Simulated scan of single mutants.
Amino acid sequence: MTHKVAILGASGYTGAELVRLISQHPTIEIAALSAERKAGMTMAQVFPHLRHLELPVLSKIGEIDFTGIDLCFCALPHKTSQEVIAALPQDLKIVDLSADFRLRDPDEYEKWYGNPHAALAQQKEAVYGLSEFYREEIKSARLVAGTGCNAATGQFALRPLIASGVIDLDDIILDLKCAVSGAGRSLKENLLHAELSEGYHGYAVGGTHRHLGEFDQEFSKIAGRPVKVQFTPHLVPANRGILATVYVKGDAQTIHQTLATAYADEPFIELLPFGEAPSTRHIRGSNFCHIGVAADRIEGRAIVIAALDNLTKGSSGQALQNANLMLGEEETTGLMMAPLFP
């Protein structure tokens, strides 16, 4: 059986990544592609690395006939996404890659994103799209909200530890490095090569990063009480990858065993041997997340490091993983490609 899909916002990095992944999927066919400012152009013109594929011409969303389309990927900016999704057919399955439906509480959305939510009915039905932890809910969902790439990386490192009670919930420090593609494709002065290369810097310092809303929501839900992590992201001059270094209080061997048990049957989560640290170069272009655990020199403290590709496991790969679940396909279909190296 072939499933027909549409990709809205196909001219961005996550849209192009979806096209790349779906081109190798045996049962999903791309029936429509949208890009408002590049309507009428081909994907080969926008992304020459995809010129070998036979793809629909880019169109405006209003020009798409959703009849016969089984699922829609929305790779649109936040705020735009909620308005578009509210107007889509009610029987259409949707995987949203924006931030618009990640937070369940409308007040929390307004707090972190600065404007009232414009699609409250859809927000109520949305399922949080961290596949490994919401698998059963995703299977029956109409609307799935993909996680933030930073939020996904931190959660893979911490969710099992919070759930099992093996770390101090009031002393969690999350230091994260993210590649520049996480900022999107639009032109920004601070992302020019001369502004970014040969250095890296912290941003949203002091607890202002929007993905903290996801950490607060998910970690507090697991623990059954408020949990707030200390979080600082850094922008590094690389195209792809996120590396999250988490400092916690707890026994390192117990932490490693807890993660080993939690991820024993997960096809995309690889726990490294104790003491080994992951690298973004070993997950590039793949849907894998590598996690390492080491004991700190200070007794009773441990370091957990997680690495994933922000465009794949952190966004478009996760979106396809969710779509597989929603369409009744094997979860790993089209996603078991090896990482690119070097």
Rank of each mutant, 00 (worst) to 15 (best):
V5K: 05
L8H: 14
S11E: 06
Y13C: 04
T14A: 05
V19R: 08
R20P: 08
I22Q: 08
S23K: 11
I30S: 13
A32H: 15
A35C: 14
E36R: 15
R37Q: 14
R37A: 15
G40F: 05
G40Q: 11
M43P: 15
R51M: 01
L53H: 13
K60L: 07
D65Q: 11
F73N: 06
F73P: 08
C74T: 13
S81R: 00
I94N: 09
V95G: 09
D96I: 04
D96Q: 04
S98G: 13
D100C: 11
E108T: 07
Y109M: 06
K111A: 07
W112Q: 12
G114N: 06
A118H: 10
A118C: 08
Q123C: 03
K124Y: 04
G129Y: 03
E132Y: 06
F133P: 00
R135W: 02
G146K: 02
C149W: 01
A151E: 05
A152D: 00
T153L: 08
G154S: 11
Q155W: 01
A157H: 00
I162Q: 00
G165E: 04
I167Q: 09
I167E: 05
L169A: 09
D171C: 13
D175H: 08
L176D: 06
L176M: 13
S181Q: 01
S181N: 05
R185Y: 06
N190V: 10
L196V: 14
S197W: 11
E198K: 15
V205F: 02
G207H: 09
H211G: 00
L212M: 12
E214K: 14
D216M: 10
D216W: 01
G224I: 15
G224C: 14
K228P: 00
V229K: 03
L235D: 02
V236R: 04
P237H: 15
N239H: 09
L243S: 02
T245A: 12
T245Y: 05
V246R: 00
Y247G: 01
G250M: 03
D251T: 01
Y263W: 15
A264P: 09
P267I: 11
F268P: 10
F268S: 10
G275P: 06
A277F: 06
S279A: 15
R284K: 12
S286Y: 11
N287P: 14
F288V: 09
R297F: 12
R301C: 00
R301N: 08
V304L: 13
V304R: 03
L308C: 07
L308W: 11
L308Y: 11
T312G: 08
G314S: 03
Q318S: 07
G328I: 10
L335K: 08
